[in-house]
C-alpha cells in the first residue's frame, strides 16, 4: 500500500510588514514620478549657468566677500543679534513652560489606565469621555506644525515674543501630552495598590503614588522638547513672531547675506548650548 505523504498546505498569510514595504515602494515611485512629470522638476536644469551664477553670488555674500564691513565683523550688528539671541532663548523657555503647564493640567485623565479606573481605583462614567476629548485635542494640536499655528496666532496678538511662544507651546503641548500620558500608562501598579490597601483616597494616590514615579520622566521629556523648541524658535519668527527668525527673514529679503551668516552662527551657538544644558540637567535628574 502506498503511503500518502501529507504536504503542509501552502496558505497565503497576510503579512503586514511586507505589505507596508510594498506600499512604501509604490509611494516612493509615485512621488518621484509626480514631481518629475506634473511639477516638471528638471534635474538637469539645476546645473545651468544662471543657477551657478546665483549660487556663487549667494555663497560669496554669505562669506562677506566684496562687502566693506560684513555684518559678522561689525560690533553694532553683533550687539543687535546677541540681544535677539537672548530674546529667542526667553521665547523657547516660555514656550516649554506653557506646554508643560498645559500638559500637567490635562495629562492625568488622558492616560488609558486612569480612564479604566485601574490607577486611581475609582471608576467614573465621565472618565472615558474626558479621555477621548483630551486625546483628540492632543492629536489636533500636534498635527498642525508650529509655523501654521504662528500664522493664525499672529492675527490675534501683536508681533513679538509672546505669539511665537504660544504657537510653539500649542504644538508641543500635543506632543508632550502624548508622551507623558504614555509614561503614566507604564507606571508600576504595585506601590499604588499598596497605598490603596492602606486606605488612601484617589487624590492621595495621585500625589503620593503616581507623581513621584512619573516626575523624573516628565522632566526628561520636557527638556528634550525644549531642545527641539530652540531649533524651531527661529522658524516661528519668520511670520513676525520675534526673535532671530524675524531678523533672518528681513536679512534674506534685503539680500544682506553676511548678516544671515551672523544670525546662523548665533543660532548654531544657541542650539549647541541647549544640547549641553539639557544633557547636564538630564544627568542631574536621573
Amino acid at each position: 500500500m502506498k503511503k500518502k505523504i501529507l504536504l503542509p498546505k501552502l496558505k497565503y498569510k497576510f503579512n503586514f510588514v511586507n505589505f507596508s514595504i510594498l506600499i512604501a515602494i509604490v509611494l516612493i515611485i509615485a512621488s518621484w514620478m509626480f514631481i518629475y512629470k506634473v511639477d516638471k522638476a528638471d534635474f538637469g536644469g539645476l546645473f545651468t549657468e544662471k543657477n551657478a551664477f546665483y549660487a556663487k553670488k549667494f555663497l560669496k555674500g554669505m562669506f562677506g566677500i566684496g562687502e566693506e564691513t560684513p555684518a559678522f565683523k561689525d560690533a553694532e550688528s553683533w550687539k543687535n543679534v546677541l540681544k535677539l539671541t537672548y530674546e529667542t532663548l526667553q521665547m523657547s523657555v516660555m514656550a516649554a513652560g506653557f506646554a508643560s503647564i498645559g500638559m500637567l493640567l490635562t495629562v492625568i485623565p488622558a492616560a488609558r489606565n486612569v480612564a479604566e479606573g485601574k490607577l486611581t481605583l475609582s471608576k467614573k462614567w465621565y472618565n472615558w469621555i474626558l479621555f477621548g476629548f483630551i486625546r483628540v485635542i492632543y492629536i489636533f494640536s500636534r498635527s498642525v506644525p508650529e509655523l501654521v499655528w504662528a500664522m493664525i496666532i499672529i492675527f490675534i496678538f501683536k508681533p513679538g515674543i509672546f505669539p511665537g511662544a504660544l504657537a510653539l507651546a500649542i504644538h508641543n503641548f500635543g506632543i508632550i501630552g502624548k508622551l507623558c500620558a504614555e509614561v503614566i500608562e507604564d507606571t508600576d501598579l504595585r506601590p499604588i495598590r499598596n497605598l490603596a490597601s492602606c486606605g488612601a483616597s484617589s487624590g492621595q494616590i495621585l500625589i503620593y503614588g503616581v507623581m513621584p514615579a512619573v516626575m523624573p520622566k516628565f522632566l526628561t521629556y520636557i527638556l528634550y522638547r525644549w531642545e527641539v523648541i530652540i531649533r524651531t524658535t527661529i522658524v516661528v519668527g519668520f511670520v513676525g513672531a520675534g526673535g532671530l527668525g524675524m531678523d533672518f527673514k528681513l536679512a534674506m529679503s534685503y539680500f544682506k547675506y553676511s548678516e544671515v551668516t551672523l544670525i546662523l552662527i548665533c543660532y548654531l551657538f544657541l542650539v549647541a548650548l541647549a544640547d549641553i544644558v539639557s544633557e547636564g540637567a538630564r544627568k542631574l535628574s536621573s
Binding site: 526667553q90 521665547m91 523657555v93 516660555m94 513652560g97 516626575m215 535628574s285
Partner: peptide, 21 residues
C-alpha cells in the same frame, strides 16, 4: 537634586515671563 532641578526650571520659566510686556 531633583527638587533643585525642578526649582531651577520653574525659575527659568518665571524669568522668561518678564520678557513680555
Amino acid at each position: 537634586k531633583k527638587t533643585i532641578l525642578t526649582l531651577l526650571l520653574i525659575l527659568a520659566f518665571i524669568w522668561s515671563l518678564f520678557s513680555v510686556n
